[in-house]
Amino acid sequence: MTVSLPTFHWPLDTVLLGSGLAAGPLDWVLLATLAILWLIFGLWLLRGPAPVRRGRTLVLHAVAGLGLAVAALARDAALFYSGVAMAGYGTVALLLIAHGAAHARTAAVQVALMVLGDLVLFEMLVSLYSQASSAEFDELRTAYAIKGQGVSFVSALLVVTGGSKVAVLLLLVPVTDRLPAWRPGAASGLLCVALVSGVLPVVRLVDPLLSSASARYSLLAIPAAAIFLCLLFALCILGKSRLDAAAQRVSTLASRSVTLGVRGLATLEALARHVAPMAAALEQRMLSWPFAVAAAATLALLLAMTFGGLVA
């Protein structure tokens, strides 16, 4: 029952770096699943346990949903990246509204993971783009085919960005009470995000049918990376106070080294203040007549001597 789903292509060459949205047969399937999951998440949110501000949640939910759709259908790196970002930040905001301030640390871990994911995604796309002629995914795929063989820089980046996006799911698992997990209802939303920003890059860049060896290999590596990253950031956020202190020391050290210039000027000013009375006293002595006449006499002598040339 091969229902030929209509392929659809919407060129947007003035948006971001210029490209468009398009949907092949597989994309429709992806889009459908995303829509269903996102609806469930929305319903959970509206009827969720915590007192929820309807208006703001609806707007955020819609924006994040739009991000997901754009990311799913994007044909170029920039659009994909903006879709991923909108979806990610939107979801965190929604969860925070739903769970309230108690889950601040969990949200912080999720944000940290997301920011790392975005940065690494950015690096990967840039390094691929420098090989390709445009930001279109098919060019990037060929570039990846060249650069991404085996264990290479680009493939590592792919794994890390995938891992950090998928790690978001792990936050559903209640590990310690100091890091309260998201309520299970949030799973559907997090799944959407993980799917789009974690798995989709592999599909777009490595192999659309995930059949090739490297695609399978990276898909296996992503969960491992996810676990590692989630643990790493959880520890970071928990130990935030110590981390802040260290960073504070770094900052003061940096500022002290740089303000040498300013300190130099301060010593200059102190020196000037010290010299001032001596200068004023010397000026007073110059007021005396013998000094003036003597100075006149010596200058006359010097002028006469040097008149012909340097000491004629």
């Binding site: 007549w289 013998p290 003036a292 006449v293 003597a294 006499a297």
Partner: peptide, 14 residues
């Protein structure tokens, strides 16, 4: 005259 101008204090001699 120059010497006196330098040395003397009172204005009249100057």
């Amino acid at each position: 005259g120059l010497y006196a101008l330098g040395v003397r204090q009172h204005l009249l001699p100057r």
